[in-house]
């Protein structure tokens, strides 16, 4: 039987993965997706393994789908959130991770409001660490489920034109996607108000524009981003109505898009701000396919990392 060639021990950043690594994760995820479509949605593959989900920022989709992914593969999944943990008693993050390590988990899935936290934790714990979103930095599992969804619908990735629209400055999803999409041969247009684009954006995007019409025109894939009110600095964002008028993806805007264009959104949606309900629920939308594929991709990540295939080159 052929073996997976992936040898990374942790999943921290899309910069660590090659185009063929990405392809292998997607292929494995397709197998995992078939499990979710059965009556008995469970295989004994990871029985006896313990996965800790450590989320210090709110999350529905990512946390639930990591939990479901672990359970569908028979792993024991434990959820910890910052509020109910001893972090709220003043324990340092480092001490807490040392203590978790002492309980011998097989994997740590981390969501943090600060960039670099998952990477730092790899130094403190024996088991593989998966970045489930760190501040404005990266969100690799979201990126992989986006790519899986695009590949599933378009049957290819290479040569596709993608426009990522909105609050790119604060979006870890956008950053992971820009890195990965260019690796697999897609061309990326970044579109947003200048105040919400990071400096040196032209280094990670093929094209930068502040015109939504220009971004929508001719794109195979349109990715709307959530306006991250919790991370916004007021100076960059005058008001919601103005933003929605200039950068909101509504039916009128979609008239300029290709008929077969896909609309993605990493969720949660601010209805009527970055995307209108008609578009989010319209024929272009694959937003719920993204959620379904999220479980599959996370099952693939658990399977590959816990299977030891990613540990070879340590």
């Amino acid at each position: 039987m052929a073996e997976q060639d992936l040898y990374h021990r942790h999943l921290i950043s899309m910069t660590d993965l090659s185009s063929s690594d990405i392809g292998q994760i997607i292929e494995t995820a397709k197998v995992m997706k078939a499990i979710s479509e059965r009556d008995v949605k469970k295989t004994p593959t990871l029985r006896g393994r313990t996965v800790i989900n450590f989320f210090t920022e709110p999350s529905t989709r990512t946390r639930t789908s990591f939990e479901i992914a672990g359970k569908r593969l028979s792993a024991d999944v434990i959820n910890i959130s910052a509020a109910g943990s001893s972090l709220s008693k003043g324990e340092s993050l480092k001490d807490m991770v040392y203590n978790l390590d002492a309980m011998k988990p097989d994997m740590l899935v981390v969501r943090s409001g600060f960039a670099g936290v998952p990477s730092m934790m790899t130094e403190w714990i024996e088991c593989p660490v998966v970045n489930a979103g760190d501040g404005r930095h990266e969100h690799p599992s979201q990126c992989l489920l986006d790519l899986m969804t695009i590949q599933e619908k378009k049957e290819r990735l290479e040569g596709l034109k993608v426009s990522i629209i909105g609050d790119i400055l604060n979006s870890r999803v956008a950053k992971s996607n820009m890195i990965a999409m260019r690796k697999v041969g897609m061309s990326v247009t970044a579109c947003g108000p200048a105040t919400l684009l990071p400096v040196n954006i032209e280094k990670i995007a093929d094209k930068v524009t502040s015109s939504l019409d220009e971004a929508v025109d001719g794109a195979d894939v349109i990715m709307a981003l959530r306006v991250q009110t919790e991370r916004l600095e007021r100076i960059g964002f005058p008001n919601v109505r103005e933003y929605s008028k200039l950068f909101g993806l509504g039916l009128e805007r979609m008239k300029k898009a290709k008929k077969e264009a896909l609309v993605l959104h990493p969720g949660p949606i601010n209805q009527g701000v970055e995307i209108s309900p008609e578009v989010a629920e319209g024929p272009w939308s694959v937003i719920l396919d993204q959620v379904t594929n999220g479980v599959a991709v996370r099952m693939a990540i658990l399977y590959l990392l816990l299977g030891g295939g990613l540990q070879i080159n340590e």
Partner: peptide, 22 residues
């Protein structure tokens, strides 16, 4: 049918076995 995900030795070969869709 691909029994890979049901194997007791799916990781004992030094790397993960590639699974196929049943």
């Amino acid at each position: 049918l691909d029994p890979t995900l049901y194997r007791d030795d799916f990781k004992q070969k030094g790397a993960v076995l590639a699974a196929k869709i049943t």
